[in-house]
């Protein structure tokens, strides 16, 4: 069974059709890159998959749960339990330290556990910076805290919105290595990116244009084809 199935999903804001008839399946452990120009519907699609918005039409099934018609409360519960979010602008709470930012996610999910939060920071190489406020961390460090926060509640799906968009090359490399490691560990990742090099790291890449899937490339198929030839 696929982890995520979208069937004929559309999103309409007034007279604007942000998404039209999207059919998409994501398998467990897959890394999917989402590309497309500004206004192509990437963010709208991410919001729908991330249980932050409801599609105007179509059906969405995540881990066997059809949340096409669920209430806002149930959507919050699904988001909390199954989704880990990584943002381009990090979105750390400015008045909480790195470890406290992780504990906030635990707090809303179940129970804050400082030891576990410190371990998660250690995993992203930031144990020594655990008591620092976001303003005292570099962009790369903030993004690593954001990744640690996304992972702290063991989500089924990690949604990353241009995670390297605000980082210099060196920090982008570190962050992408983390995503590669997560992928190797079996995490399912959907990542929005403008950078073809980043998209190449994913197994599959979808290009959106005017709210429709305009193109897609499956590296697994390409690789298999290359192996055959």
């Amino acid at each position: 069974m696929s982890l995520l199935e979208l069937h004929d999903v559309s999103m309409v804001y007034g007279s604007v059709k942000a998404l039209q008839g999207i059919d998409l399946t994501v398998e467990k452990g897959e890394w999917l890159a989402l590309m497309g120009p500004s206004g192509s519907g990437k963010t709208t699609l991410m919001n729908i998959i991330g249980c932050m918005d409801k599609a105007s039409t179509g059906s969405i099934v995540l881990d066997g749960v059809d949340f096409t018609d669920v209430t806002a409360g149930n959507l919050t519960m699904l988001r909390r339990d199954k989704i880990g979010l990584v943002f381009q602008q990090f979105h750390l709470i400015p008045y909480l330290t790195a470890v406290e930012n992780l504990m906030v996610a635990q707090y809303y999910h179940s129970m804050p556990d400082e030891q576990e939060a410190l371990l998660a920071l250690e995993r992203v190489g930031l144990k020594e910076r655990a008591r620092h406020l976001p303003s005292q961390l570099s962009g790369g460090e903030q993004q690593r805290v954001c990744i640690a926060r996304a992972l702290i509640n063991y989500p089924m799906l990690i949604l990353a919105d241009e995670p390297t968009g605000n980082l210099d090359e060196a920090n982008a490399k570190i962050v992408l290595e983390f995503f590669q490691q997560l992928h190797r560990e079996g995490h399912t990742i959907i990542m929005v990116t403008h950078d073809p090099k980043v998209a190449e790291l994913a197994e599959r890449c979808i290009v959106l244009e005017h709210g429709r899937i305009a193109n897609w490339k499956d590296r697994r198929v390409v690789c298999r084809e290359e192996e055959v030839s």
Binding site: T76, I93, V104, Y108, R149
Partner: peptide, 9 residues
């Protein structure tokens, strides 16, 4: 918004 995205009711 972030807190809600993290699952805050």
């Amino acid at each position: 918004g972030l807190k809600k995205a993290l699952g805050a009711e």
